[in-house]
Nucleic acid binder design. Structure first.
Length: 423
RNA sequence: GGAGAGGUGGCAGAGUGGUAAUGCAACAGCCUGCUAAGCUGUCAACGAGCAAUCGUUGCCAGGGUUCGAAUCCCUGUCUCUCCGCCA
């Protein structure tokens, strides 16, 4: 969420930025927050004064009792009654104001970096790089779901039987290939200085709020009602929430983590060819990278992360393109996002396999994730994360592009992990 | 799942109603002629102020009792011990 201090000093430029780039008008919410904040501070001033009075009176009463001057103490006591009532009233309105401000802040998206192109939809995304794919186009190539069936790699029907649509079952070499990819991605992360974490797949409500899935995307997460826990939609949630309410010493930055988890998404509202095969699932595997760093370094860090993820795709020899998301396609919490999409030759379409974002202070403000700089000042850190990579769509692209008349070739870098060269 | 005991600063640990002892560690400043000692200081959130600084809040969380709550009461939560179950 946005910092209230920024809204105090800079509200007009915030409104303008979000309107220009995201095409969303938040002037109403911002102005409400601004006015509520004025009221809140005024209330606090009065409340503080009254509480100070109360403290003085209370300690006086204590002293009189000690001295045994009961009558005087009783007179003082009477003085506290009205004060007490007033404090109660002001405290209540203070809390109400605080709550209203918070609720409004939850509804306002992040301000964007200057690089973000204005735009309303994915059509306005900026294509920064694209492999040439013209020579790859070929009607005879099969889409991955047919390959999966032909070689018995992934069984979608069986998943429906056991759980439901969007929960495929990987079999034999399909399962091994998937595991090989996970292992490959984790090892590459380790080599690049990311500490590996293995984290819980269920999180509590506080964590959901911490990274912004709640209250915004409540309907997109699976929820266990008995224990009130949420199944994670991405490893970002448990990994970033490790640092909730934490003050990090600047010398310990940047913090770099890589982690593999399954991801669970209800994907309410999806339909049609978008959900065919591996394109969109309720449960899928993903290796995620997360970094926490200082505001002055975070955009350089973002570039480094993009280069890193690109290097993975290149090692797998997949055609891909790189997009800078426009305001309209940008996530609610992000200040700048790059998407990487691999080309699916069997479907003749691009598949998003990674989304790498800098959230600036938007997440850390909610998380209270701060660092102490060399001057001992405490500042909000910047958080970043990205997929490195999402497995199903990589599988899809990989299977399709490596298909031959009589099998599927495994990319060289994966062969040490799979133990076989082809399917 | 049953029974019991607990949750206090970076750590240890006292505190049964009067506004958070003490020890250790770390850091900063001062002082001191010597492998170091001593002294002083130290946290966070919010607000006021140009600032030094001041006020309020914070003893797991939320309620309650009270002039006053770390302390008493209620609810929740987490940890530990024992029993049960168990990969």
């Amino acid at each position: 969420m946005l910092q209230i201090q920024k809204i105090r000093t800079d509200k007009d430029s915030i409104i303008k930025n979000i309107l220009d780039v995201r095409k969303v008008d938040v002037s109403d919410q911002i102005n409400k927050v601004y006015n509520l904040d004025l009221k809140k501070r005024d209330t606090q001033k009065h409340l503080d004064e009254m509480s100070a009075n109360m403290n003085v009176l209370s300690s006086q009463i204590g002293e009189e009792f000690k001295k045994g001057v009961i009558e005087k103490a009783n007179i003082l006591k009477k003085e506290t009654f009205a004060l007490k009532e007033n404090i109660k009233k002001f405290k209540q309105s203070f809390e109400e104001l605080d709550q209203s401000i918070l609720e409004l802040l939850y509804q306002i998206p992040n301000t964007t970096n200057e690089l973000v192109p204005p735009g309303r939809s994915e059509n306005d995304n900026e294509i920064i790089f694209s492999s040439s794919i013209d020579s790859l186009k070929n009607d005879k190539l099969l889409p991955h779901w047919e390959l999966c069936q032909k070689y018995d790699l992934i069984d979608f029907e069986l998943g429906v039987k056991v759980t439901g649509a969007g929960f495929p079952i990987y079999k034999g070499k399909g399962a091994i290939l998937q595991r090989a990819l996970i292992q490959f991605f984790l090892n590459e992360g380790n080599k690049n200085g990311y500490q590996e974490l293995s984290v819980p797949h269920l999180v509590n409500e506080s964590s959901g709020y911490g990274t912004g899935q709640l209250p915004d995307k409540e309907g997109q997460m699976y929820h266990t009602s008995l224990d009130d826990l949420y199944l994670i939609p991405t490893a970002e949630v448990p990994i970033t929430n490790i640092y909730r309410d934490v003050i990090i010493e600047e010398k310990d930055l940047p913090i770099k983590h890589v982690g593999y988890t399954p991801c669970f998404r209800r994907e309410a509202g999806s339909y049609g060819k978008d959900v065919r095969g591996l394109n969109r699932l309720h449960q899928f595997d993903k290796v995620e990278i997360v970094q926490i760093t200082t505001p002055s370094e975070s955009y350089q860090t973002l570039d480094n992360m993009v280069v890193y993820v690109e290097s993975l795709i290149k090692k797998l020899d997949l055609p891909y393109r790189k997009l800078r998301l426009c305001g309209g396609d940008l996530g609610f919490t992000s200040a700048l996002t790059y998407d990487l999409e691999t080309y699916s030759v069997g479907q003749d379409k691009w598949l998003e396999v990674s989304s790498i974002s800098n959230f600036g202070t938007f997440q850390s403000n909610r998380l209270k994730l701060r660092y102490r700089d060399q001057n001992k000042a405490i500042e909000l850190a910047h958080t970043l994360n990205g997929s490195a990579l999402a497995l199903p769509r990589i599988m899809a692209s990989l299977l399709e592009i490596n298909q031959t008349e009589d099998g599927i070739n495994i990319p060289k870098v994966l062969r040490p992990y799979t133990g076989f060269d082809s399917i």
